[in-house]
Write a protein that binds this DNA or RNA. Structure first.
Lengths: 144, 144
DNA sequence: TGACACATAGGAATTACTACTATATAGTAA
DNA sequence: TTACTATATAGTAGTAATTCCTATGTGTCA
């Protein structure tokens, strides 16, 4: 992803923050920057290591808390999965996830029909739906 | 679920074990029994508490390890979700999960079209697919 | 029925995550 | 610009979840 694209994402991020009353701290911006720059769906730990290069004193808790906050305001997402360490995704594009059960790699793919899956009316009426995704698990090409 | 149904499930479970070379220990059967009896998608901890009534000396590790093993041979499943404690599902019926982000309750529903979602060919060719699910998250009727 | 590979119990260790508190700072308004 | 205040951070402690280790036990098969 180009420098310009990242800058544009950060600009949009600042707008989102202002809209939701979230303060724009340099730490937050840095965490967000690293999150959107990668497509590796990092854990809090991984991002902590990256952000530490710019903010050597940052605490793990700040990184983790920030990521949870980003998830709250919809600027990032907790990746669905089957009982492993929590992984995050900064991409706003419509896409789906494939997760390798061996190497834990999460790979994006996009299949348009999955963007618009329709739930039965009974579910939508009973519950407030926040997220509906198609999630695929298996063995990736490298592990096969 | 009736006693007879549970017995039938356990019978089928013993067949699965023999097929995969897994030993049939009384602990395993007891853990499996509790897992298939409930639709609450319990964590290892919850099942540990239940199984302890029959095997007061059983260790948490045995319960957890057994559940992971059951997932390996396909006799049970780790429920997909967004970064919480690992939950298990013993139901072999086709169904989907709704998870309440507040109370963490997991509710089964069944929408036939979701049983047969088709992946793009490129994905199926590149990866070995083990599981593809529709996963729904939101606020449940009780928490609304 | 004996041998042995696999499984279990018990506890320790590790990892993941969350809570607490004093200090610092972004945003706001004078 | 400056001072105020609510929110955020750093540092660390604490808790929860999960896995590892090792001695002992037990299904399974010959």
């Amino acid at each position: 992803m180009s420098r310009v694209e990242v800058d544009e994402k950060i600009r949009r991020f600042t707008v989102m923050c202002r809209k939701t009353g979230l303060r724009l701290t340099p730490q937050r911006i840095e965490i967000y920057k690293h999150l959107v720059k990668t497509d590796e769906h990092p854990s809090a730990e991984i991002l902590y290591e990256k952000v530490k290069k710019t903010f050597p004193n940052i605490s793990f808790d700040t990184v983790n808390r920030t990521l949870l906050t980003l998830n709250e305001i919809g600027a990032a997402f907790i990746v669905e999965g089957s009982g492993d360490v929590r992984r995050f995704d900064g991409s706003m594009e419509k896409h789906q996830h494939f997760k390798c059960v061996k190497c834990k790699r999460i790979i994006d793919f996009h299949h348009k029909p999955f963007d618009i899956i329709k739930l039965p009316a009974s579910i939508g009426k009973k519950f407030k739906i926040l997220k509906k995704v198609v999630y695929v698990e298996g063995i990736c090409d490298l592990c096969k």
